[in-house]
Design a protein around this nucleic acid. Structure first.
Length: 358
DNA sequence: AATGTCGCCAACCGCATGGCT
DNA sequence: AAGCCATGCGGTTGGCGACAT
């Protein structure tokens, strides 16, 4: 097997470091509309000065609508500790057993909390074994004070996996679906269902790999913002890929219909879901709410964005900026014209979509 | 109140893997 | 069969906030 390595982050001219709210919104908007079948082509098509890898990570670890936020529950911690005892540092496999949690998140939690916790338990076990001279072998998670209340019969979906194999053996979405009924849920379906459920961020089993290309049905969930980027940057980033390596999987795939999410289609419910989710996202990003101080938000835009031209567009031209300044509802209407134009340009000239300038 | 230290978390880096040509 | 490419994965690191001195 050949193992060519696609140059990615080494490219010059790309933003690095923390993501700005504008970048987040742009990425979310694009993925909602077109999906993410081709991460490498995505930033270009979405008008992001990021490498595909960075976009993927950002989406998987932070922007995915099905992510749980907040602290890990005791059950989750127990599950992680138990699975880690069986699987080791197979974070992605462990994450597959914890709906709404990412491998990165689990890894961090392990390194910061659970590792110590497990070490402490082992010490206690040894101490206990020394006195009792006995059992407990092979059970990495024996109860200790706090966690034991749940008696390791975790009510998580993963809990059913008495043997971690169930979760770990396959990353195939189908296989994952077998592991838990929750895995039938599609993130885009949730976008529709969630508002009715009035749940902030529903947990979903979607592992990172199970979230492929689902935007086809959610096309109208959100308007895709447009930004102004130096066209030259993409020739740098693309390198020799003038023929568009992305084109191979590119636009056709990006808009490919999603299996389960087809039901979403372009319904009003879908739009409502999009509004709801974006609203929630904005809240997460600290951008949502009554615009008592629009200037503050403008400052946010200007100060944090790495896009000069975008800053120039803040006041009037850029729909994302408008979005932040006027709120999601007004902006949705204001963006319609922009979206139409963008669609036209994308269809007419997919390879140079990054050069979109309004 | 100012400074230093520690811990957490998001993001990056490089390798591995699998699909496609 | 071999090579190329995109994506996935796990380890590592840098930034930032919280806490202690």
């Amino acid at each position: 097997m050949g193992r060519g390595r696609a140059p990615c982050c080494a490219k010059v001219g790309l933003n690095r470091g923390s993501w700005t709210p504008q970048e987040d919104m742009r990425l979310v908007a694009y993925i909602q509309k077109h999906g993410h079948s081709n991460w490498r082509a995505l930033p270009k098509q979405a008008g992001l000065l990021r490498c595909g890898k960075s976009c993927r990570l950002r989406w998987i670890n932070y922007l995915r609508p099905d992510l749980k936020r907040g602290n890990f529950t005791v059950e989750e911690e127990e599950t992680i500790m138990r699975l880690h005892g069986m699987l080791g540092n197979k974070w992605s496999k462990i994450a597959a057993c914890l709906p709404g949690r990412t491998d990165n998140e689990i890894k961090n939690v392990w390194n910061t909390h659970l590792k110590k916790k497990v070490a402490l338990r082992e010490q206690q076990q040894k101490a206990g074994a020394a006195t009792k001279n006995g059992a407990g072998a092979g059970t990495p998670v024996t109860d200790s004070s706090s966690a034991s209340s749940s008696t390791t019969t975790t009510n998580n979906s993963s809990a059913g996996s008495d043997s971690g194999d169930q979760c770990g053996t396959s990353k195939e979405p189908d296989a994952a679906a077998d592991a838990s009924p929750l895995r039938d849920i599609d993130v885009w379906d949730m976008l529709v269902d969630a508002p009715a459920a009035a749940q902030p961020m529903l947990s979903s089993p979607c592992s990172s790999s199970s979230l492929t290309t689902c935007a086809g049905g959610a096309e109208d969930l959100i308007e895709l913002p447009v930004m102004d980027i130096e066209p030259d940057i993409w020739s740098i980033i693309d390198g020799e890929g003038a023929d568009g390596s992305g084109a191979r999987h590119g636009d056709a795939d990006a808009t490919a219909p999603c299996t389960g999410a087809a039901a979403v289609s372009t319904s009003e419910a879908g739009e409502a879901a999009g509004d709801w989710w974006l609203e929630d996202l904005e809240k997460e990003l600290g951008l949502w709410g009554p615009t008592e101080d629009p200037l503050a938000q403008t400052d946010l835009l200007v100060d944090h964005t790495g896009f000069g031209p975008l800053s120039d567009c803040n006041s009037e031209g850029d729909p994302v900026s408008t979005y932040f300044q006027t709120g999601p509802h007004n902006a949705a209407a204001e963006l319609q014209d922009v979206e139409l134009q963008l669609e036209l340009e994308l269809e007419l000239e997919p390879s140079s979509s990054a050069a979109l300038v309004l």
